[in-house]
């Protein structure tokens, strides 16, 4: 694709399919899967009652389950899926590294360390406490990585890897010494969307929505950055400013997602790979398609997490890992690493 093509964004895929059409199709699919998600659970509820619960709430047990348990869960899956996928697209674009994912900034390790430390000090009791610790830990870790590694993409990745190793090691030592802390951590460490309906989600979800809008607004400038700093300067992009804002967006998106759902790997890595071919080198379309495919992937995994076992649930992070590994191998074999 030409430089001009990149900056303006491709209106069609390489096979000539309109991007807008694909996006609308993706939204329709997302809406359909979300409705299915609300209909699936431990208690059998007829599709008619599911629709009634959403449109004509009577306060019966079935309606309460649909409105107060399953619908918030589906909404959370959409928000977390979009946040992780877009954060993944941004970090891969910024680092110009197809193996980068939001955890590279130390966000996951920072949240895990903060949960461990908070549990040891008695701050991480309850969902609100854990949420607070995870947000603080992920933001501080990402700030540290961004400050040290801001000068170059390679330095950023290396700093993130180093900080992740240090925080993971220290936290592991603490958990091994303190069984009670380990007990708190082991539930958080397997990312899940279950039982989040009572957690204080307004602020994290608001932050995700704001940052998704911000990512879209920034995507044109990022388009220029993918062609190299000197070309970006020539095209009038403020490279340092764009890079700093992108880091903030990645931090908030992945930090908020990790805080509310725990570590869910692969979504941030696999989704940009899957949509990159469709986006045809355009960052705005990469961000838009990631914003739709991320929630679809997470919703499907979440439905799977509820139906795979005869009783109980498999944490959604286990299902995404199970799906994500083969999908990543398939994507790499089918499309190669693609163009950033």
């Amino acid at each position: 694709m030409t430089a001009a093509g990149r900056t303006t964004g491709a209106a069609t895929t390489q096979r000539g399919v309109p991007q807008a059409g694909l996006l609308i199709g993706g939204f329709v699919l997302l809406a359909a899967i979300a409705v299915v998600s609300v209909g699936v659970g431990a208690r059998s509820i007829s599709p008619v009652d599911v629709v009634r619960a959403l449109l004509d709430h009577q306060g019966t047990d079935d309606h309460v389950i649909v409105r107060d348990v399953r619908a918030p869960r589906a909404l959370l899956a959409v928000a977390v899926g979009a946040a992780l996928a877009v954060a993944g697209a941004l970090i891969q674009t910024l680092a110009r590294n197809p193996l980068a994912e939001p955890g590279v900034l130390g966000v996951t390790a920072g949240a895990g360390f903060a949960i461990t430390l908070g549990s040891g000090l008695g701050f991480a009791a309850g969902q609100a406490g854990q949420l607070g610790c995870a947000v603080l830990g992920s933001v501080l870790a990402a700030l540290l990585v961004a400050t040290v590694g801001r000068r170059s993409p390679l330095r950023l990745v290396l700093t993130g890897v180093a900080l992740t190793a240090v925080l993971t090691g220290v936290a592991l030592g603490m958990r091994l010494m303190l069984p009670d802390v380990f007990d708190v951590y082991r539930f958080w460490s397997v990312g899940s969307l279950a039982a989040r309906e009572q957690a204080p989600l307004v602020w994290p979800l608001t932050a995700i929505v704001v940052c998704l809008v911000g990512a879209l607004a920034l995507s044109r400038a990022l388009n220029a950055l993918t062609m190299g700093e000197s070309v970006a300067h020539t095209l009038g992009a403020e490279v340092n400013r764009v890079r700093a804002i992108t880091l903030v967006l990645i931090t908030v998106l992945s930090g908020a997602a990790t805080a509310v759902a725990g570590p869910i790997l692969f979504v941030g890595l696999i989704v940009p790979h899957l949509v990159r071919r469709i986006a045809a080198g355009s960052v705005p379309w990469l961000v838009l398609h990631s914003m739709v495919l991320g929630p679809i992937l997470l919703l499907v995994a979440d439905i799977g997490s509820r139906v795979l076992l005869p009783t109980g649930e498999v944490p959604v992070a286990v299902v995404t890992a199970f799906l994500g590994g083969p999908m990543l191998i398939w994507a790499v074999r089918r499309f190669g690493e693609g163009s950033l």
Binding site: Q127, F187, W188, S192, A194, A195, G312, E313, P315
Partner: peptide, 14 residues
């Protein structure tokens, strides 16, 4: 009578 015990797992929604 029914009884709710203290060992449910909030993270799993049980």
């Amino acid at each position: 009578l029914g009884h709710i015990g203290a060992y449910g797992e909030v993270a799993k929604g049980t």
